[in-house]
Design a protein around this nucleic acid. Structure first.
Lengths: 204, 204
DNA sequence: TGTCTGAATGATCAACGAATTCTTCAGCGC
DNA sequence: GCGCTGAAGAATTCGTTGATCATTCAGACA
C-alpha cells in the first residue's frame, strides 16, 4: 500500500520537475517514466491519464494554499483584515509561482480547458474559510448580520474573479494588482460592515 | 467628403453582413470589395487594415451602448437603481448580440488579441457615466461622500470584470448571470451607501 | 497471482510546400 | 489631380505527410 503511494509520489515529482522546466506539452510520458526507471505503460497504473498528473500537481499547489487560508482564518485579527490577507496571499502565491516557473501557466491553461470543474472545487474549498471569517466578523459585531453566508462568499469570489486568473492579470505588476485588489476589498468590506440588502430574486 | 464617409459606411455594412454570418476569419477583403462593387485594394483608402474594420464594427456596437448609458444616467431614479441598470443593460446587450450571431464572439477575440488597448477606451467611456451616477448619488445623499470618484468607478469595473468577457461567462445562462451581477452589486451598493474607507496606499 | 514491459493503435503534432489572403503601389481613366 | 484597378509582394493559412505521443493490453517475469 505504501509502495503504491510512494511510486505515485515519485512519478508526480519526476513529472513536476520536467513540467516546470520544459512545460506540460513538451514533457512526454516516456520521459517521466524514464526518470523513474519504468516504462510509460506503468505510469497508467498510478495515473489514469497525463492530465491527471497535471491535476495532481495543481492539487498539491492548492493544499499549501488551503493550509495558509486555514491559518489566516484562525488568526486573532479583525475579520476584514483576515479577509484581505486571504486574498492577498492567494494572489501573491500564484503570482510568485508563475514568476518563478512561467511554465506552470501552461498547466493552468490546460487544466482550465480539460478539467473545467476542477476550479469549482477550489472555489468551494476557499468558501469554507470565507464563511468562517464572515461568521466571525458578524459574531464580533464588525460585520452586520448576514442572512446567507455562502451566497455572500460566492459574490465576494465573483467580485474578485479578476485576481484569480493569471491570463487576466498577467500584464500587471504584483504591486498594482495588490492595490487594485485592496481597492475592491475596500468597497466589499464597507458593504459588509453596513449590511447588505439582498436583491429580491437572490433571497433563498 | 460625404462620398467618402458614404463609401466607408457601405464597406463597413458589407463587412458586417459577411462577418456576422461567416465569421471574421472566413471573410476576405475581396469578398467585401466584391459586395461593394470595387476592388480589394480600394478598401485600403477607407480602412488601414482588416482589423480596423473589426474595430469599426465594435465601435458601432459600443456607440449604441454609450447612448443607452447616457440615457440611464439621466433617468429620474435613485442612483443605485441606475447603477444596476447600466451594468444589466451592458450584460444583456452583449449576451443577446452573441446569442443572435455567435460569430461576433470571434470578432471580440481577434480584437482583444490585436487591439488590446481598444477595451480600455470602452472602460474609460463607461466610467464617465459611472462617475456621473456616483456624484448624483452623493449629492442626493443616497451614497456617502466619495473622495475619488474615478477610483471608485475603476474598482466597480474591476469587481464586475466577470460580466464583461463572454469567454468568462459564456457557459452561464443570462438569468443566472443577472442574478450574480445583482448579488455583487448588492454588496457594492451597500458599501457606497455606508461610505468606503480607502486603503492607505490607494489614497491619491 | 500480481507487476511490469514493450509492441500495437489511434490521436495529435510538426514540417513544409502550395494556395490563399492581406496589403502595397504603379499606372490607368476621368 | 483624383479615384480606382489589378498585378506584385509579403504574410498567413491550409493540406498533406511523416513522425511523435498518449494510451491500451497481451503476455513475460518473478
Amino acid at each position: 500500500m505504501n509502495d503504491k503511494t510512494d511510486t505515485r509520489q515519485q512519478i508526480l515529482e519526476a513529472a513536476m520537475n520536467r513540467i516546470v522546466h520544459y512545460g506540460y506539452g513538451k514533457t512526454t510520458m516516456s520521459e517521466i517514466a524514464g526518470d523513474c526507471g519504468m516504462s510509460a505503460g506503468n505510469i497508467y497504473r498510478f495515473f489514469a491519464s497525463k492530465i491527471d498528473i497535471a491535476e495532481a500537481m495543481a492539487r498539491k499547489f492548492n493544499l499549501e494554499l488551503y493550509q495558509t487560508y486555514a491559518e489566516i482564518a484562525r488568526e486573532d485579527r479583525p475579520a476584514p483584515e483576515r479577509l484581505r490577507r486571504v486574498f492577498e496571499y492567494g494572489l501573491t502565491h500564484s503570482y510568485d509561482a508563475i514568476e518563478k516557473d512561467a511554465k506552470i501557466l501552461e498547466v493552468a491553461e490546460v487544466l482550465q480547458e480539460e478539467r473545467p470543474l476542477f476550479f469549482n472545487e477550489g472555489l468551494a474549498q476557499e468558501r469554507i474559510y470565507l464563511n468562517q471569517i464572515l461568521e466571525d466578523g458578524v459574531a464580533a459585531g464588525t460585520f452586520a448580520p448576514i442572512t446567507d453566508t455562502t451566497f455572500i462568499s460566492e459574490m465576494i469570489q465573483s467580485a474578485l474573479m479578476k485576481f484569480r486568473f493569471p491570463q487576466l492579470y498577467s500584464l500587471l505588476t504584483l504591486a498594482k494588482l495588490k492595490r487594485e485588489l485592496n481597492g475592491v476589498l475596500d468597497i466589499i468590506i464597507a458593504g459588509l460592515k453596513h449590511g447588505v440588502d439582498i436583491t429580491a430574486e437572490n433571497k433563498r
